[in-house]
Design a protein around this nucleic acid. Sequence first.
DNA 1: CGATTCCTTGATCAGTATCAAGGGCGGTGG
DNA 2: CCACCGCCCTTGATACTGATCAAGGAATCG
Lengths: 233, 233
Amino acid sequence: MNNCEQCVVRNRAICAGLTAAELDVLSQLGRKQQVSRGQTLVWEGDEALLVANVIKGVLKLGISMPDGREQIVGVVFPSDFIGRPFGQQSEHSVTALTDAEVCVFPRKSFDDFARLHPDLEHKLLQRTLSELDRARGWMLMLGRKTASEKIATFLLELGDRLNDSGCQQSDNVISRFELPVDRQQMGDVLGLTIETVSRQLTKLKSSGMIDLPDRRSVIIKDRERLQNLASAC
Amino acid sequence: MNNCEQCVVRNRAICAGLTAAELDVLSQLGRKQQVSRGQTLVWEGDEALLVANVIKGVLKLGISMPDGREQIVGVVFPSDFIGRPFGQQSEHSVTALTDAEVCVFPRKSFDDFARLHPDLEHKLLQRTLSELDRARGWMLMLGRKTASEKIATFLLELGDRLNDSGCQQSDNVISRFELPVDRQQMGDVLGLTIETVSRQLTKLKSSGMIDLPDRRSVIIKDRERLQNLASAC
DNA sequence: CGATTCCTTGATCAGTATCAAGGGCGGTGG
DNA sequence: CCACCGCCCTTGATACTGATCAAGGAATCG
């Protein structure tokens, strides 16, 4: 059984706000699971057997085409919810981008529990609505932005989300962070090839907007100019 | 006051399943509204003051960039739900693609009502989850498909959705339909220019997969080949 | 019937993909 | 600690898809 009281995402995941008694019941249904980088938790097209809360790490949601083309359609961080409640099958795979820890529930038990707890469903609804808004912003990016605008948009959003999910108490924006993705995966998020991603990053670096101390690190040096480039919507 | 009993989307919109008494309360909150083609119901960035059910017609959800680039991020049909419950502002505009009729509720009253009716929130959650799945499929299309694949995907999905929303009792697929969008709007859905849309349609026509009896009509002549082209996912 | 708007088609251009090669970083084993 | 190997990333050359610019034609509306 899980010790929810001490869970680091206790106050931010959908479990927040449940009574001790409810949490007790819910915790009986779930279990913590480690997922190592590259490991896939759910396959595209699989029956939707589980849902989960992310406790630690970053995971991607991906869809792929028969010929191998791939699109990353979501990136989830600690306290985010994974899976498709009340659904028959998963439309996308879920794969760890970093070593991760998740709190997994069998979907059907979770569904039943949720149906009995309107507050939980309400939180789930709010999250899903926000995720939908985010997906739609992402659609604008994919459909209408240029390669450099896409990169700028991605770096800014990723920085923000890493910041938010990290329980940082500080209000000041962190401008250095580790990329949870390699160049290919950045391409899969943005609808670009690895070469284009690399070239655009180099360009942003030479223009002084960012710095790239090593392959996995980014420093935002001129946030304002980067935001302009992202065509801040 | 609305006469919900006779509403054509009564059994498919989120109101389905409410008791007569509940429906009575809800109907007091809402009113029917006509929206003519081209008219905008909600502007991007506006405070989210209203939500609605679509009764008749087709509407688009759009996001635009400062320089005028635009992306259509959703298309809604009869029985679909519009608006952002429990949210501060609308991330996108809502504009009628055809003359339409909607059942509008002030967002705050709707929110309050929904909070008191878990079944309604549950339906809203299911719809939102489906919409999110759809948006993610759309992301794959925008990020990774070629122009002709995009057009094929769009025509097939549009045909299906017009079919579903039309209360057609027949199971056999309808292969002729009216486009609710002009060429520019098709481009705004697919992340293409109007010229590319036009050229690709011409190409599909000459290859015999579709016919275009007039600017607004499409006949799917070879569904299988079109599905192959769409890279059926 | 004329005017306007929407659509198609053609010519050219630009941005990104593709193909190809080389370099740097990290990990492993000596 | 160093040398080697493999992977990831960068860079260059070229190709190609779709965008842009431009013009003409067809449908729609007053």
